[in-house]
Design a binder for these strands. Structure first.
Lengths: 212, 212
DNA sequence: TAGATTGTTAATCGATTAACAATC
DNA sequence: TAGATTGTTAATCGATTAACAATC
Protein backbone atom coordinates (compact mmCIF):
# COMPACT_ATOMS: atom_id res chain seq x y z
CA UNK A 1 0.00 0.00 0.00
CA UNK A 2 0.92 3.62 -0.64
CA UNK A 3 4.64 3.49 -0.93
CA UNK A 4 7.21 3.83 -3.72
CA UNK A 5 8.03 7.17 -2.09
CA UNK A 6 5.60 9.93 -2.77
CA UNK A 7 5.95 12.12 -5.83
CA UNK A 8 6.41 15.78 -4.84
CA UNK A 9 3.25 17.80 -5.26
CA UNK A 10 5.22 20.34 -7.28
CA UNK A 11 5.79 17.66 -9.88
CA UNK A 12 2.17 16.52 -9.88
CA UNK A 13 0.98 20.05 -10.44
CA UNK A 14 3.09 20.28 -13.57
CA UNK A 15 1.64 17.15 -15.13
CA UNK A 16 -1.57 18.76 -16.44
CA UNK A 17 0.53 21.32 -18.24
CA UNK A 18 2.60 18.62 -19.94
CA UNK A 19 -0.64 16.90 -20.77
CA UNK A 20 -1.99 20.06 -22.33
CA UNK A 21 1.06 20.71 -24.50
CA UNK A 22 1.29 17.09 -25.58
CA UNK A 23 -2.41 17.06 -26.46
CA UNK A 24 -1.88 20.12 -28.60
CA UNK A 25 1.05 18.48 -30.38
CA UNK A 26 -0.91 15.31 -30.85
CA UNK A 27 -3.66 17.27 -32.56
CA UNK A 28 -0.99 18.78 -34.81
CA UNK A 29 0.25 15.31 -35.68
CA UNK A 30 3.63 15.70 -34.04
CA UNK A 31 4.98 12.20 -33.64
CA UNK A 32 7.97 12.60 -31.38
CA UNK A 33 9.58 15.26 -29.26
CA UNK A 34 12.83 15.54 -27.34
CA UNK A 35 12.96 16.95 -23.85
CA UNK A 36 14.97 19.90 -25.13
CA UNK A 37 12.47 20.79 -27.86
CA UNK A 38 9.62 20.47 -25.42
CA UNK A 39 11.49 22.54 -22.87
CA UNK A 40 11.75 25.38 -25.36
CA UNK A 41 8.05 25.31 -26.16
CA UNK A 42 7.08 25.18 -22.52
CA UNK A 43 9.71 27.49 -21.15
CA UNK A 44 11.12 25.09 -18.63
CA UNK A 45 14.42 23.22 -18.53
CA UNK A 46 14.89 19.93 -20.33
CA UNK A 47 16.33 18.60 -17.12
CA UNK A 48 13.16 19.32 -15.28
CA UNK A 49 11.05 17.53 -17.84
CA UNK A 50 13.23 14.43 -17.69
CA UNK A 51 13.33 14.51 -13.91
CA UNK A 52 9.59 14.97 -13.65
CA UNK A 53 8.78 12.14 -16.00
CA UNK A 54 11.21 9.79 -14.35
CA UNK A 55 9.22 9.95 -11.18
CA UNK A 56 6.78 7.73 -12.98
CA UNK A 57 9.05 5.62 -15.16
CA UNK A 58 11.06 5.85 -18.35
CA UNK A 59 8.77 6.94 -21.14
CA UNK A 60 11.46 7.98 -23.58
CA UNK A 61 14.13 6.35 -25.65
CA UNK A 62 17.75 7.41 -25.97
CA UNK A 63 18.55 9.00 -29.28
CA UNK A 64 14.86 9.31 -30.15
CA UNK A 65 13.09 11.28 -27.49
CA UNK A 66 9.48 10.74 -26.50
CA UNK A 67 6.64 9.46 -28.59
CA UNK A 68 4.02 12.16 -28.24
CA UNK A 69 0.97 9.94 -28.32
CA UNK A 70 2.43 7.42 -25.92
CA UNK A 71 3.58 10.04 -23.45
CA UNK A 72 0.23 11.80 -23.66
CA UNK A 73 -1.59 8.60 -22.89
CA UNK A 74 0.75 7.68 -20.06
CA UNK A 75 0.38 11.05 -18.37
CA UNK A 76 -3.35 10.73 -18.85
CA UNK A 77 -3.26 7.44 -17.00
CA UNK A 78 -1.16 8.88 -14.20
CA UNK A 79 -3.65 11.71 -13.82
CA UNK A 80 -6.53 9.28 -13.96
CA UNK A 81 -8.33 10.99 -16.82
CA UNK A 82 -8.79 7.57 -18.41
CA UNK A 83 -10.88 6.45 -15.46
CA UNK A 84 -13.96 8.35 -16.60
CA UNK A 85 -14.60 9.66 -13.10
CA UNK A 86 -18.25 10.45 -12.54
CA UNK A 87 -18.92 13.92 -11.18
CA UNK A 88 -21.78 15.79 -9.62
CA UNK A 89 -22.16 19.52 -9.10
CA UNK A 90 -23.70 20.80 -5.91
CA UNK A 91 -24.95 24.34 -6.21
CA UNK A 92 -26.71 25.33 -9.44
CA UNK A 93 -25.84 29.00 -9.26
CA UNK A 94 -23.87 30.92 -11.81
CA UNK A 95 -20.63 29.12 -11.23
CA UNK A 96 -22.36 25.73 -11.15
CA UNK A 97 -23.96 26.60 -14.45
CA UNK A 98 -20.66 27.65 -15.96
CA UNK A 99 -18.92 24.47 -14.89
CA UNK A 100 -21.80 22.31 -16.10
CA UNK A 101 -21.37 23.93 -19.48
CA UNK A 102 -17.60 23.79 -19.42
CA UNK A 103 -16.91 21.30 -22.17
CA UNK A 104 -13.25 20.90 -21.26
CA UNK A 105 -14.19 18.75 -18.31
CA UNK A 106 -16.06 16.27 -20.45
CA UNK A 107 -13.15 16.33 -22.88
CA UNK A 108 -10.69 15.56 -20.10
CA UNK A 109 -12.66 12.47 -19.23
CA UNK A 110 -14.89 13.65 -16.42
CA UNK A 111 -18.53 12.77 -16.82
CA UNK A 112 -21.13 14.98 -15.23
CA UNK A 113 -24.06 12.87 -14.08
CA UNK A 114 -26.10 15.16 -11.88
CA UNK A 115 -26.56 18.63 -10.44
CA UNK A 116 -28.03 19.39 -7.02
CA UNK A 117 -29.50 22.47 -5.43
CA UNK A 118 -31.60 23.35 -2.42
CA UNK A 119 -33.75 25.66 -4.51
CA UNK A 120 -36.88 23.72 -5.47
CA UNK A 121 -37.59 26.03 -8.40
CA UNK A 122 -34.47 24.70 -10.09
CA UNK A 123 -35.30 21.06 -9.53
CA UNK A 124 -36.34 19.21 -12.64
CA UNK A 125 -34.62 21.65 -14.98
CA UNK A 126 -31.76 20.56 -17.18
CA UNK A 127 -28.44 22.29 -17.54
CA UNK A 128 -26.46 21.25 -20.56
CA UNK A 129 -28.67 18.16 -20.69
CA UNK A 130 -27.96 17.18 -17.10
CA UNK A 131 -30.83 17.01 -14.63
CA UNK A 132 -31.01 19.23 -11.59
CA UNK A 133 -32.10 17.36 -8.49
CA UNK A 134 -33.16 18.58 -5.11
CA UNK A 135 -30.66 18.16 -2.31
CA UNK A 136 -33.01 15.78 -0.54
CA UNK A 137 -32.42 13.32 -3.35
CA UNK A 138 -28.65 13.33 -2.86
CA UNK A 139 -28.36 10.32 -0.60
CA UNK A 140 -30.35 8.03 -2.82
CA UNK A 141 -28.54 9.28 -5.89
CA UNK A 142 -25.17 8.65 -4.26
CA UNK A 143 -26.16 5.10 -3.37
CA UNK A 144 -27.44 4.35 -6.84
CA UNK A 145 -25.00 6.17 -9.07
CA UNK A 146 -21.87 6.24 -6.94
CA UNK A 147 -20.32 9.43 -8.29
CA UNK A 148 -16.59 9.83 -7.68
CA UNK A 149 -16.10 13.58 -7.54
CA UNK A 150 -18.29 16.33 -6.11
CA UNK A 151 -17.89 19.85 -7.41
CA UNK A 152 -19.01 22.27 -4.74
CA UNK A 153 -20.20 25.65 -5.91
CA UNK A 154 -22.16 26.80 -2.93
CA UNK A 155 -21.86 29.49 -0.27
CA UNK A 156 -19.04 28.92 2.15
CA UNK A 157 -21.22 28.58 5.23
CA UNK A 158 -23.07 25.66 3.68
CA UNK A 159 -20.11 23.87 2.24
CA UNK A 160 -18.74 22.03 5.27
CA UNK A 161 -22.00 20.34 6.13
CA UNK A 162 -22.59 19.22 2.56
CA UNK A 163 -19.02 17.99 2.30
CA UNK A 164 -19.36 15.95 5.48
CA UNK A 165 -22.50 14.35 4.08
CA UNK A 166 -20.70 13.54 0.87
CA UNK A 167 -17.82 12.05 2.81
CA UNK A 168 -20.22 9.85 4.73
CA UNK A 169 -21.87 8.73 1.51
CA UNK A 170 -18.57 7.70 0.00
CA UNK A 171 -17.47 10.46 -2.35
CA UNK A 172 -13.87 9.96 -3.47
CA UNK A 173 -12.78 13.55 -3.99
CA UNK A 174 -14.01 17.11 -3.66
CA UNK A 175 -13.38 20.07 -5.90
CA UNK A 176 -14.30 23.04 -3.77
CA UNK A 177 -15.02 26.50 -5.17
CA UNK A 178 -16.31 28.12 -2.03
CA UNK A 179 -14.24 30.88 -0.51
CA UNK A 180 -12.71 28.71 2.21
CA UNK A 181 -10.13 26.03 2.83
CA UNK A 182 -12.54 23.17 3.22
CA UNK A 183 -11.59 20.54 5.76
CA UNK A 184 -13.68 17.56 6.73
CA UNK A 185 -13.44 14.55 9.00
CA UNK A 186 -13.12 12.05 6.17
CA UNK A 187 -9.74 11.37 4.65
CA UNK A 188 -10.41 12.13 1.01
CA UNK A 189 -8.59 14.45 -1.36
CA UNK A 190 -9.94 17.98 -1.56
CA UNK A 191 -8.84 20.64 -4.02
CA UNK A 192 -9.73 24.13 -2.94
CA UNK A 193 -9.97 26.54 -5.84
CA UNK A 194 -9.57 30.18 -4.95
CA UNK A 195 -10.24 32.18 -8.05
CA UNK A 196 -9.72 35.50 -6.37
CA UNK A 197 -6.28 34.42 -5.13
CA UNK A 198 -5.15 34.31 -8.70
CA UNK A 199 -6.67 37.71 -9.42
CA UNK A 200 -4.93 39.18 -6.41
CA UNK A 201 -1.62 37.78 -7.60
CA UNK A 202 -2.26 39.55 -10.89
CA UNK A 203 -3.15 42.69 -9.03
CA UNK A 204 0.11 42.47 -7.09
CA UNK A 205 2.08 42.17 -10.29
CA UNK A 206 0.35 45.17 -11.82
CA UNK A 207 0.95 47.07 -8.65
CA UNK A 208 4.70 46.52 -8.49
CA UNK A 209 5.04 47.20 -12.20
CA UNK A 210 3.52 50.57 -11.47
CA UNK A 211 4.96 51.42 -8.09
CA UNK A 212 8.71 50.89 -8.38
CA UNK B 1 12.68 51.62 -10.66
CA UNK B 2 11.93 47.95 -10.00
CA UNK B 3 14.60 46.94 -7.54
CA UNK B 4 14.74 46.14 -3.82
CA UNK B 5 15.30 42.56 -4.94
CA UNK B 6 12.25 40.76 -6.17
CA UNK B 7 9.97 38.94 -3.76
CA UNK B 8 9.78 35.23 -4.64
CA UNK B 9 6.58 34.33 -6.45
CA UNK B 10 6.02 31.54 -3.93
CA UNK B 11 5.68 34.19 -1.24
CA UNK B 12 3.38 36.38 -3.33
CA UNK B 13 1.09 33.45 -3.98
CA UNK B 14 0.68 32.93 -0.26
CA UNK B 15 -0.38 36.52 0.42
CA UNK B 16 -4.01 36.12 -0.66
CA UNK B 17 -4.36 33.25 1.77
CA UNK B 18 -3.04 35.35 4.64
CA UNK B 19 -5.39 38.07 3.50
CA UNK B 20 -8.29 35.65 3.58
CA UNK B 21 -7.57 34.35 7.08
CA UNK B 22 -6.95 37.82 8.45
CA UNK B 23 -10.18 39.07 6.90
CA UNK B 24 -12.01 36.24 8.58
CA UNK B 25 -10.45 37.09 11.93
CA UNK B 26 -11.20 40.75 11.45
CA UNK B 27 -14.87 39.92 10.93
CA UNK B 28 -14.70 37.91 14.14
CA UNK B 29 -13.27 40.92 15.97
CA UNK B 30 -9.93 39.35 16.68
CA UNK B 31 -7.61 42.20 17.56
CA UNK B 32 -4.17 40.68 17.54
CA UNK B 33 -2.52 37.43 16.56
CA UNK B 34 0.94 35.95 16.99
CA UNK B 35 2.71 34.21 14.17
CA UNK B 36 2.51 30.97 16.09
CA UNK B 37 -1.26 31.17 16.64
CA UNK B 38 -1.77 32.07 13.01
CA UNK B 39 0.51 29.27 11.93
CA UNK B 40 -1.68 26.77 13.75
CA UNK B 41 -4.84 28.05 12.13
CA UNK B 42 -3.33 28.07 8.69
CA UNK B 43 -1.28 24.93 8.96
CA UNK B 44 2.02 26.49 8.09
CA UNK B 45 5.08 27.25 10.24
CA UNK B 46 5.34 30.42 12.27
CA UNK B 47 8.75 30.90 10.75
CA UNK B 48 7.32 30.97 7.29
CA UNK B 49 4.78 33.58 8.23
CA UNK B 50 7.40 35.84 9.75
CA UNK B 51 9.75 35.33 6.81
CA UNK B 52 7.01 35.98 4.30
CA UNK B 53 5.87 39.18 5.96
CA UNK B 54 9.38 40.47 6.39
CA UNK B 55 9.79 40.57 2.66
CA UNK B 56 7.59 43.62 2.83
CA UNK B 57 8.60 45.15 6.14
CA UNK B 58 8.06 44.65 9.83
CA UNK B 59 4.36 44.63 10.53
CA UNK B 60 4.56 43.12 13.99
CA UNK B 61 5.75 44.07 17.38
CA UNK B 62 7.87 42.01 19.73
CA UNK B 63 5.96 40.65 22.66
CA UNK B 64 2.64 41.55 21.06
CA UNK B 65 2.34 39.93 17.68
CA UNK B 66 0.46 41.42 14.79
CA UNK B 67 -2.50 43.73 14.87
CA UNK B 68 -5.05 41.94 12.70
CA UNK B 69 -6.65 44.97 11.14
CA UNK B 70 -3.35 46.65 10.42
CA UNK B 71 -1.82 43.56 8.90
CA UNK B 72 -4.94 42.92 6.84
CA UNK B 73 -4.81 46.43 5.46
CA UNK B 74 -1.10 46.28 4.75
CA UNK B 75 -1.38 43.01 2.85
CA UNK B 76 -4.31 44.52 0.97
CA UNK B 77 -2.12 47.41 -0.07
CA UNK B 78 0.68 45.09 -1.14
CA UNK B 79 -1.78 43.14 -3.24
CA UNK B 80 -3.22 46.32 -4.63
CA UNK B 81 -6.81 45.59 -3.67
CA UNK B 82 -7.06 49.12 -2.32
CA UNK B 83 -6.47 50.50 -5.81
CA UNK B 84 -10.00 49.78 -6.96
CA UNK B 85 -8.76 48.36 -10.24
CA UNK B 86 -11.33 48.67 -12.99
CA UNK B 87 -12.06 45.45 -14.82
CA UNK B 88 -13.80 44.38 -17.97
CA UNK B 89 -14.89 40.91 -19.02
CA UNK B 90 -14.48 39.83 -22.59
CA UNK B 91 -16.68 36.91 -23.51
CA UNK B 92 -20.21 36.85 -22.13
CA UNK B 93 -20.60 33.09 -22.14
CA UNK B 94 -21.31 30.95 -19.11
CA UNK B 95 -18.02 31.62 -17.42
CA UNK B 96 -18.18 35.32 -18.18
CA UNK B 97 -21.63 35.35 -16.63
CA UNK B 98 -20.45 33.51 -13.57
CA UNK B 99 -17.55 35.86 -13.01
CA UNK B 100 -19.73 38.91 -13.57
CA UNK B 101 -21.97 37.61 -10.83
CA UNK B 102 -19.11 36.59 -8.57
CA UNK B 103 -19.50 39.01 -5.72
CA UNK B 104 -16.14 38.18 -4.19
CA UNK B 105 -14.38 40.18 -6.85
CA UNK B 106 -16.29 43.34 -6.02
CA UNK B 107 -15.64 42.64 -2.35
CA UNK B 108 -11.90 42.33 -3.00
CA UNK B 109 -11.89 45.76 -4.53
CA UNK B 110 -12.20 45.05 -8.22
CA UNK B 111 -14.86 47.02 -10.03
CA UNK B 112 -16.46 45.55 -13.09
CA UNK B 113 -17.27 48.32 -15.54
CA UNK B 114 -18.12 46.53 -18.77
CA UNK B 115 -18.66 43.24 -20.54
CA UNK B 116 -17.92 42.60 -24.20
CA UNK B 117 -18.97 39.97 -26.68
CA UNK B 118 -18.96 39.45 -30.43
CA UNK B 119 -22.51 38.16 -30.32
CA UNK B 120 -24.79 41.04 -31.25
CA UNK B 121 -27.78 39.40 -29.63
CA UNK B 122 -26.11 39.87 -26.26
CA UNK B 123 -25.26 43.52 -26.82
CA UNK B 124 -27.34 45.93 -24.78
CA UNK B 125 -28.24 43.34 -22.17
CA UNK B 126 -27.16 43.74 -18.59
CA UNK B 127 -25.46 41.14 -16.47
CA UNK B 128 -25.52 41.84 -12.78
CA UNK B 129 -26.26 45.45 -13.68
CA UNK B 130 -23.28 45.78 -15.99
CA UNK B 131 -23.84 46.56 -19.66
CA UNK B 132 -22.80 44.17 -22.40
CA UNK B 133 -21.16 45.93 -25.31
CA UNK B 134 -20.26 44.73 -28.74
CA UNK B 135 -16.60 44.06 -29.39
CA UNK B 136 -16.53 46.83 -31.97
CA UNK B 137 -17.04 49.28 -29.13
CA UNK B 138 -13.99 48.06 -27.23
CA UNK B 139 -11.47 50.58 -28.53
CA UNK B 140 -13.57 53.59 -27.74
CA UNK B 141 -14.48 52.19 -24.35
CA UNK B 142 -10.84 51.60 -23.52
CA UNK B 143 -9.94 55.14 -24.45
CA UNK B 144 -12.74 56.63 -22.41
CA UNK B 145 -12.87 54.40 -19.37
CA UNK B 146 -9.29 53.14 -19.16
CA UNK B 147 -9.96 49.81 -17.47
CA UNK B 148 -6.98 48.22 -15.74
CA UNK B 149 -7.68 44.51 -15.95
CA UNK B 150 -9.27 42.42 -18.67
CA UNK B 151 -10.84 39.11 -17.79
CA UNK B 152 -10.79 36.87 -20.82
CA UNK B 153 -13.41 34.17 -20.99
CA UNK B 154 -13.40 33.37 -24.66
CA UNK B 155 -12.39 30.45 -26.86
CA UNK B 156 -8.68 29.86 -26.99
CA UNK B 157 -8.30 30.50 -30.70
CA UNK B 158 -9.70 34.00 -30.29
CA UNK B 159 -7.86 34.95 -27.17
CA UNK B 160 -4.45 35.95 -28.54
CA UNK B 161 -5.82 38.44 -31.02
CA UNK B 162 -8.05 40.07 -28.44
CA UNK B 163 -5.22 40.17 -25.94
CA UNK B 164 -2.92 41.86 -28.43
CA UNK B 165 -5.57 44.47 -29.05
CA UNK B 166 -5.95 45.04 -25.34
CA UNK B 167 -2.20 45.37 -24.99
CA UNK B 168 -2.11 47.96 -27.72
CA UNK B 169 -4.94 49.88 -26.07
CA UNK B 170 -3.10 50.00 -22.77
CA UNK B 171 -4.59 47.34 -20.54
CA UNK B 172 -2.47 46.82 -17.41
CA UNK B 173 -3.08 43.14 -16.73
CA UNK B 174 -4.89 40.12 -18.11
CA UNK B 175 -6.70 37.36 -16.26
CA UNK B 176 -6.99 34.61 -18.82
CA UNK B 177 -9.42 31.70 -18.52
CA UNK B 178 -8.98 30.23 -21.96
CA UNK B 179 -7.37 26.83 -22.18
CA UNK B 180 -3.94 28.12 -23.19
CA UNK B 181 -0.85 29.79 -21.82
CA UNK B 182 -1.49 33.19 -23.27
CA UNK B 183 1.55 35.10 -24.42
CA UNK B 184 1.52 38.47 -26.16
CA UNK B 185 3.99 40.99 -27.48
CA UNK B 186 3.28 43.56 -24.77
CA UNK B 187 5.07 43.33 -21.46
CA UNK B 188 2.12 43.22 -19.08
CA UNK B 189 1.31 40.71 -16.35
CA UNK B 190 -0.90 37.81 -17.39
CA UNK B 191 -2.38 35.23 -15.05
CA UNK B 192 -3.46 32.10 -16.81
CA UNK B 193 -6.13 30.19 -14.93
CA UNK B 194 -6.42 26.55 -15.79
CA UNK B 195 -9.41 25.19 -13.97
CA UNK B 196 -9.03 21.71 -15.34
CA UNK B 197 -5.43 21.53 -14.12
CA UNK B 198 -6.72 21.67 -10.60
CA UNK B 199 -9.33 19.02 -11.33
CA UNK B 200 -6.67 16.77 -12.79
CA UNK B 201 -4.53 17.20 -9.71
CA UNK B 202 -7.53 16.07 -7.68
CA UNK B 203 -8.02 13.17 -10.04
CA UNK B 204 -4.39 12.17 -9.58
CA UNK B 205 -4.79 12.19 -5.84
CA UNK B 206 -7.92 10.06 -6.00
CA UNK B 207 -6.14 7.74 -8.36
CA UNK B 208 -3.11 7.09 -6.15
CA UNK B 209 -5.34 6.71 -3.09
CA UNK B 210 -7.07 3.93 -4.96
CA UNK B 211 -4.23 2.30 -6.83
CA UNK B 212 -1.57 1.60 -4.24
C1' DT C 1 10.90 44.24 35.09
C1' DA C 2 9.85 39.55 33.15
C1' DG C 3 7.59 37.32 29.48
C1' DA C 4 6.37 37.10 24.95
C1' DT C 5 7.19 37.35 20.38
C1' DT C 6 9.18 39.56 16.64
C1' DG C 7 12.85 40.27 12.97
C1' DT C 8 16.68 38.14 11.17
C1' DT C 9 20.67 35.18 10.71
C1' DA C 10 22.16 30.46 10.26
C1' DA C 11 21.16 25.56 9.28
C1' DT C 12 18.55 22.32 6.85
C1' DC C 13 15.97 20.54 3.51
C1' DG C 14 14.12 19.92 -1.02
C1' DA C 15 13.79 21.14 -5.68
C1' DT C 16 16.04 22.53 -9.83
C1' DT C 17 19.79 22.39 -12.92
C1' DA C 18 24.01 20.51 -14.81
C1' DA C 19 26.63 16.81 -16.32
C1' DC C 20 27.52 12.56 -18.29
C1' DA C 21 27.56 7.57 -18.83
C1' DA C 22 24.28 4.40 -20.82
C1' DT C 23 22.00 3.17 -24.87
C1' DC C 24 18.92 3.53 -28.69
C1' DT D 1 28.76 2.82 -36.43
C1' DA D 2 28.17 7.83 -35.06
C1' DG D 3 24.91 10.98 -33.31
C1' DA D 4 21.31 11.98 -30.45
C1' DT D 5 19.06 11.94 -26.39
C1' DT D 6 17.58 9.63 -22.49
C1' DG D 7 17.83 8.22 -17.44
C1' DT D 8 20.18 9.26 -13.44
C1' DT D 9 23.72 10.87 -10.36
C1' DA D 10 26.00 14.92 -8.59
C1' DA D 11 26.16 19.98 -7.87
C1' DT D 12 23.76 24.09 -7.18
C1' DC D 13 20.39 26.89 -5.93
C1' DG D 14 16.46 28.52 -3.41
C1' DA D 15 13.04 27.99 -0.06
C1' DT D 16 11.74 26.45 4.43
C1' DT D 17 12.67 25.78 9.14
C1' DA D 18 15.18 26.49 13.39
C1' DA D 19 17.35 29.34 16.56
C1' DC D 20 18.12 33.33 19.07
C1' DA D 21 19.36 38.08 20.05
C1' DA D 22 16.72 42.31 19.94
C1' DT D 23 12.97 44.63 21.84
C1' DC D 24 8.29 45.69 22.95
Amino acid sequence: MQNEKQVPIAVVKRLPRYFRYLGEMLRNNVERISSSDLSEKMNVTASQIRQDLNNFGGFGQQGYGYNVEHLYNEIGKILGVDKGFKTIIIGAGNLGHAIANYSNLQKRGFTLIGIFDVDKSKTGQKINDISVFHMSELEQFMNNEKPDIAILTLPKDEVTEVAETLGRLGIKGIWNFSYSDLKISYDIPIENVHLSDSLMTLSYRININTTF
